[in-house]
């Protein structure tokens, strides 16, 4: 099992803030909108350095999405920022009509996704956002795994013409991806080559998959671990190439099983290469208050859950 050394733990939202700051300097068309969560989204530096390109909309997310759509018409590249819950479910019709159907170049940037938002509880812990966004025709959906990758993704989506949903989170997690790694939208990242099982993970579950891989290696199981940072478009060939070799799959994500990464991969495999699959995800349930670690344990999103899923799926191999 390959080693993934890191020097510090950082939050992915800070990677977003750092990416925005770079864009502020490098791309004069980038504009930023926020619905009263500038600090939480780490947008402060951009707001301070480029006040003329920063739009505080107040607690009015629907209006924020509409204004963003309008700004694209004058050639701007708007990045909207609020919590994932208010970035998706609250404004679904605005995104659907004014952004996705209208083909507008809006970057919907969403923090505090999933259970790791923690103590605020289920009202704020959206676990359906990836599904909501990936169902929209023409929407690109990205869920990076650490600070460096979130920063790189933020910068990369400014150069991509089309609506994007970028999801990140609140807790600090190991920052292990190389700072200079280019972010390629739609291209999965091979983390560890293996032969016994393919583990496809996204977002915060990527590090947990690495930890699971180490435990599996100690048991003599050689896991292939792939970071699927782009949920849509899915890197079909990376998935199929891996599965042809390993012949069984575990997916891992901080999201509902319905509509998430596992669901996308299962759909692909059912069509192209029927394969045993186990999914580590939240199973049709809302979250609750608690610390991020407690919640990940209670809802079955820890390395041990990935290990158990691997054992189960290997046993199902023909």
């Amino acid at each position: 099992m390959k080693k993934f050394p890191y020097t510090e733990k950082k939050d992915t939202r800070s990677g977003f803030g750092a990416g925005l700051s770079e864009l502020g300097k490098s791309n004069p068309n980038v504009v930023v909108l926020c619905a009263d969560l500038t600090g939480s989204l780490k947008m402060d530096a951009f707001a301070k350095d480029h006040p003329e390109r920063f739009f505080q909309t107040g607690i009015a997310e629907a209006n924020m999405i509409g204004i963003a759509a309008g700004l694209t018409i004058g050639g701007k590249i708007p990045f909207t920022g609020t919590f994932a819950n208010f970035s998706t479910g609250r404004v679904y019709d605005q995104i659907r009509q004014s952004v996705a159907y209208s083909g507008k170049n809006v970057k919907i940037c969403a923090s505090h996704a999933g259970l790791t938002l923690g103590e605020d509880g289920a009202t704020h812990q959206i676990l359906e956002d990836l599904g909501l966004m990936k169902m929209l025709p023409g929407m690109t959906v990205i869920n990076p795994c650490d600070y460096n990758q979130t920063k790189a993704a933020t910068i990369a989506i400014a150069d991509f013409n089309g609506p994007v949903y970028l999801r990140f989170g609140r807790p600090t997690v190991p920052n292990f991806t190389p700072a200079d790694q280019k972010f390629e939208i739609g291209k999965a990242v091979m983390l560890n080559e293996g032969t016994d099982v393919s583990i496809f993970a996204t977002g915060h579950l990527v590090w947990k998959a690495i930890e699971a891989g180490e435990q599996l290696a100690a048991m003599g199981i050689n896991a292939e671990i792939i970071n699927i940072h782009t949920i849509k478009p899915l890197d079909n060939s990376a998935v199929l190439n891996s599965v042809r070799k390993t012949r069984c799959v575990v997916t891992a994500e901080e999201h509902q099983m319905n509509g998430g990464l596992g669901d996308s991969i299962a759909q692909l495999l059912a069509r192209e290469l029927p394969t045993p699959i186990e999914m580590v995800a939240v199973n049709d349930s809302f979250g609750e208050s608690g610390t991020p670690d407690q919640l990940m344990t209670k809802y079955g999103l820890d390395p041990v859950n990935i290990v158990e899923a691997v054992k189960k799926v290997i046993a199902r191999k023909a």
Partner: peptide
Amino acid sequence: RIASGSLGQGMSVAIGAALA
């Protein structure tokens, strides 16, 4: 320049275009 039909969205879009 924009899809419309689901009501209530056009003023926000117009404001965005005006800001641009």
